[in-house]
């Protein structure tokens, strides 16, 4: 018997089941279809826009390949905008009923009466979704890379490939953030509909209303008469920091910097700071340095939500239905 335990690890049994459940579920298939459709659309517009944007000697133009992700001819938003918009929805859809649906079906008490640690269930569900997400994003981005290669005929440089991989990782972290938020709701709320609505309303709040509110605040605190340069900068910084409470803003900052190497600062730059700067794109390391706070913040949020969900779940009494 002891040897059997080393062969069959209950944790991976749960992960396996969760992965196959996710992939077979209609909601994942629908989300996948939406993501694929919008990405195809935005890629198509990117390709049509390429005719006018040939690689030239302009150093800003040297990361030609990355433009696939960021440019658009105006008919459809570019690839990264779609990811930043649909990613949260994908995460919420994968996590909102993780725990409460099992509780309502009565399967949670059955699974937890097997000799497994309670956190196995939570961890396995998170890991399973993370694995599916990782496969999805890596393959999506590599597909874009492949299509780009075939259609444009110019191979990407090593740095471009690295930047795209980093972009994939940041996307996964971003979606994992929303995934954990919705898992937290699924532990907190007994009804799956409540937790789905809670997740979606937070997503809507940040993707639509948050910017409006920040604009109102900005209008309110900006002085009417002329102010000094320093005051203006500090005001700008304040507003930017308020904006950064929005996880979507963090993601946008991070991805833009990664995919547009020309970006050298996420805050206001004075002319003095600009003077003497070599007009060349930043190397990957420097771009990473620039967005490291954003990535850390997203990771921290992910961990906080996971910790809260964990705390609530471990203390909970598990009744059938």
């Amino acid at each position: 018997m002891q040897t059997n335990y080393s062969i069959v690890r209950p944790f991976w049994v749960i992960v396996n089941k969760e992965i196959s459940d996710t992939i077979k579920s209609w909601r994942f298939i629908i989300m996948l279809a939406i993501v694929l459709l919008t990405c195809t659309g935005s890629l198509y517009t990117a390709f049509t826009g390429f005719a006018s944007a040939k690689p030239g000697n302009d150093p800003e133009e040297s990361f030609f390949f990355l433009k696939l992700f960021t440019i658009s001819d105006g008919t459809l938003p570019p690839f990264i905008v779609f990811i930043s918009f649909l990613g949260p929805l994908l995460g919420i859809s994968m996590g909102f009923d993780a725990i409460n649906s099992e509780q309502n079906k009565g399967t949670l008490s059955r699974v937890l009466s097997q000799p497994i640690y309670r956190d196995y269930v939570l961890n396995a569900k998170f890991l399973a979704s993370l694995i599916v997400l990782s496969i999805l994003f890596f393959s999506l981005n590599l597909l874009v890379l492949g299509f780009g290669l075939v259609i444009i005929g110019i191979p990407p440089t090593a740095e471009e490939v690295l930047r795209i991989l980093m972009f994939s990782i940041v996307s996964i972290v971003y979606v994992a953030f929303w995934l954990n938020l919705s898992i937290l709701f699924s532990v907190r709320f007994r009804q799956a509909t409540t937790s789905a609505l809670a997740g979606i309303s937070i997503w809507l709040f940040f993707s639509i209303f948050y910017n409006m509110i920040v604009n109102v605040i900005a209008k309110g605190i900006s002085p009417a008469q002329m102010i000094s340069e320093n005051q203006l900068i500090s005001l700008q910084k304040l507003i930017q920091n308020i904006m950064r409470l929005n996880p979507g803003q963090l993601f946008d900052d991070a991805t833009t910097t990664l995919l547009v190497p020309g970006v050298r600062s996420l805050g206001p730059l004075t002319m003095e700071q600009m003077s003497g700067a070599i007009p060349s794109p930043l190397p990957l390391g420097q771009s990473m340095m620039l967005v490291w706070p954003q990535i850390t913040a997203l990771l921290a949020g992910t961990l906080v939500f996971f910790g809260l969900a964990y705390l609530q779940f471990m203390r909970r009494e598990i009744r059938s239905r």
């Binding site: 079906k105 009565g106 949670l108 009466s113 009744r319 059938s320 239905r321």
Partner: peptide
């Protein structure tokens, strides 16, 4: 072995 009241199975 524990059989809960109104036991649940994975319906699919």
């Amino acid at each position: 072995g524990y059989l809960a009241e109104d036991v649940g199975f994975y319906d699919d």
